Amino acid sequence: MRDLGAGFGYLMKGQRWVAQHGKRYGWSLLPGLITLVLYAVALVCLGVWGDDAITWVTPFADDWSSPWSGLFRGFLTAVLFALALLLAVLTFTAVTLLIGQPFYESLSEEVDRAESGGEVPESGLPLWRELWISARDSLRILARAALWGLLLFALGFVPFVGQTVIPVLGFFVTGFFLTEELTAVALQRRGVQLRDRLTLLRSRKGLAWGFGAPLAVSFLVPFVAVFLMPGAVAGATLMVRDLEGDPEARGAAPTTAPHPHPAPHIAGADETPRGLTS
């Protein structure tokens, strides 16, 4: 429970940080606005042509008597739209971070610089390489999130449990993946790979849930997601900075091979310093 509260605290600290840096906050809103427009167009298209698509893929229902054909296709259309909404929530952060990589990287560096008095961990990689790593890791996280989403969707049909426990569980699962995506901005600069990031967050699930679950709830409202994203990146960076000094979290990060350009990372006292690996 303490970790849940601490995670939520980092989210609030991040929002306060960007509120105190208005110019930086304004620039950091652009990626979220672009992503919101793209998703809104996609969902509107699905709403307009989704029924036609379902009719096209279910020709066997053409000869069904009324009202079964309409009910069946209406149910499938509703399921399709629900899955699209779930996918939008799960992928909004990843797509926004990918589109806004330069914006959020700069914001995260600014948080590090302000908190450390000038010292900023750097990956030493060119922008195209960072974008490739970010896109690759986002696809891997999306695959994991999609599997969880399908499982939770299926469990949603279980009487009582599907209408009570499963929605709550869904927010915690979504929150965990949101936290991973947001902390990745700062952790990637520190040379921590995806597998190690997941290991780190699994060792502090309460912290990840406390940070990400409230975001998962608020991101159900599109405009809220746009305005909270810069503060979420700032809060995730603050959380990563504190985890660097946490012995329990440091011990959770496995060792990787050193790189010619080492970067600070979360590591135990007995570990070899880890640099960036591709």
Rank of each mutant, 00 (worst) to 15 (best):
A19Q: 05
Q20T: 06
H21D: 06
G22W: 06
K23V: 09
K23D: 09
R24L: 12
R24A: 13
R24G: 15
Y25K: 09
Y25I: 03
Y25M: 02
W27N: 05
S28C: 13
S28P: 06
G32D: 12
L33G: 14
L33I: 13
L33K: 15
L33H: 10
I34R: 03
I34H: 01
I34C: 02
V37I: 15
V37H: 14
L38E: 11
L38Q: 12
L38A: 13
L38W: 13
Y39E: 15
Y39G: 00
A40H: 08
A42I: 01
L43S: 01
V44G: 00
V44D: 07
C45W: 07
C45S: 10
C45R: 07
L46C: 04
G47M: 05
G47W: 00
V48D: 02
W49P: 03
W49Q: 04
W49S: 05
G50W: 05
G50S: 01
D51N: 15
D52K: 14
I54T: 02
I54E: 00
T58H: 07
T58C: 01
T58D: 07
P59C: 00
P59W: 07
A61S: 10
D62S: 11
D62T: 12
D62H: 11
D63G: 12
D63H: 02
S65V: 13
S65P: 10
S65E: 11
S65A: 11
S66R: 15
W68L: 14
W68R: 14
S69A: 13
G70V: 09
G70W: 15
L71N: 13
L71P: 14
F75I: 12
F75S: 14
T77W: 12
A78R: 06
A78E: 07
V79I: 06
L80M: 06
L83G: 01
L83A: 00
L83W: 00
L87I: 02
T91N: 15
F92L: 10
F92I: 04
T93R: 03
V95C: 04
V95H: 08
T96L: 07
T96C: 08
